[in-house]
Amino acid sequence: MSRAVLLLAAALFVVLLAAVPAALLLDLPYLLFLFQQLAILATAAVGLNLVLGYAGLPAFGHAAFVGIGSYTVGILATELPGTLFTSAWVQLPLAAALAGLVAALIGAVSLRTRGVAFLMITLAFGQMLYFAAVALERYGGDDGMILVAPSRLGEQNLSRGVLSYTISVAVLAVALYVSFRLMRSPFGTVLRGAAANERRMQAVGVAVHRYRIGAFAASGALCGIAGVLLANHTAFISPATLAWTRSVELAVMVLLGGAGTLFGPLFGAAAFVLLEEVLSGVTEHWRIVFGPLLLLVVLAAPGGIAGLLGRQSND
């Protein structure tokens, strides 16, 4: 990993942490709101990067796993308020397990295909879960639902404020650490090696399929955790969280930042959220500017931001 990549990652974390006193002193609650959104989306992007980046599989339905996390919080808050099930200590592992399990199942089916077919089938599964969420009349159907009971954490909760913010940043740090450990382990080197040459990986005795399902599970679990935080952050849960456009946005973050690099998803999420913020302040048609801008970056720097900063192979 190049020094510039490490420096930028460190700088981003310093900014994320310095935002707390800055927001309190200057009375800028919106700053924390924006940066928390950044941290949560970056966590989901770190999850997607395991599959899309390191394993080299064009998965375009990951918003569904974020949605599973969000709906876990919303449904438990509606059905079992005031019980153990609205505790963050229960919801986070439960959402991670559910999203990881669904991701593993979807992965197991999707991985029977390759290339464009794989892309389409992951997209289709994402859409299936989107329409499943729309069909949940009891939980607001198309309109979604307001989160009536935020995830409890001791005496406090994850809804808003400094604690919620700090936890989102801490979860991002943990997600990055998990990604770091996974991808330098034998499991991770198999995933990366299979992306480089799948046939050869089979021919040295590694059943690649299983490892990729494992990557899907880990990836889905991280997205599910991001979903729990997102539901608390916006205090609102709707099928829009699972929309295919959200999946594409996550993929754009990964590609923009540098697919298959440790900090790429963080860089991509930061660039995405901040650009969106700046451009949407200038014009409501900000996407007209944003789209071509992304295109330029991808064409000019196939390795994304991390690539521009000088990346060694496989880091």
Partner: peptide, 21 residues
């Protein structure tokens, strides 16, 4: 590393996911 893949597969250590390869 090219050679290590096959060696790990033979030793059945490719599924270790936390300790560094």
């Amino acid at each position: 590393e090219n050679v290590a893949f096959g060696l790990r597969a033979r030793r059945r250590t490719t599924s270790r996911f936390w300790r560094a390869a």
